[in-house]
Design a protein around this nucleic acid. Structure first.
Lengths: 105, 105
DNA sequence: AGAATAGGCAAGCATCCACTTGCCTGTCAA
DNA sequence: TTGACAGGCAAGTGGATGCTTGCCTATTCT
């Protein structure tokens, strides 16, 4: 029905890597970045020195999971975040009543 | 501050495996199961023939992530689900405005 | 006490996955 | 048109991880 939900496995697998989660943070903060921009900001801001190809593969995984959507713009490829698939997570497991909210003991 | 949030990496790593997600489904449906019960229901309902030790290791990962809490009861160890850590996911990435909701084209 | 039941510890193995390296394609500016 | 820039494809590698196997501890029932 929806384009982004190929299967839930892809979603969780995409979220499993910390670098990919940081890339999602980056895109949440500044939308429509190119591969090179993301590479640069990972290195600068997050001190993640990583080959361009590694980041490209991460973006492919995120896109496969529907968490990132990309569009070509000339020789640039702009990426932006889509958090819609995340809603499936909250919907899958009903909220549990843990009473360690107020009782700090 | 909270016992369950050792770090976010554990949470996502725990969710990354499909067997663990099914275990969570099982616990969501019937709370307080023992290791042997979970083994049995994985085999019966989900047709997942798997050694007891494998399930035990999965439960350990889920517990490490704070998604499962266990308590000893004699020679039994009862497990129950805690979905509270899942809230961190939704909170981390703000909701994006994707307009491919109605436009099915 | 002794057998049965519920679970734990640790080593070994096979697969998966993140990352690199090398080379290729496509787009833009001088 | 040629070089610089943005990105893609594919093979190789080291480390993480899911699962098994074998043995051990603790609790309960007869």
């Amino acid at each position: 029905m929806l384009a982004y939900s190929r299967c839930m496995a892809d979603l969780f697998k995409a979220l499993a890597d910390s670098t990919r989660r940081i890339i999602m943070d980056e895109l949440a903060q500044r939308d429509g970045q190119t591969l090179f921009e993301i590479c640069g900001r990972l290195a600068m801001i997050h001190e993640l020195a990583m080959s361009r190809q590694a980041v490209s593969q991460h973006l492919a995984v995120l896109e496969e999971a529907g968490l990132v959507i990309s569009r070509r713009e000339g020789r640039y490829k702009l990426h932006h975040l889509d958090t819609a698939p995340l809603r499936e997570i909250a919907e899958r497991w009903p909220q549990t009543h843990t009473n360690d909210q107020g009782t700090n003991q």
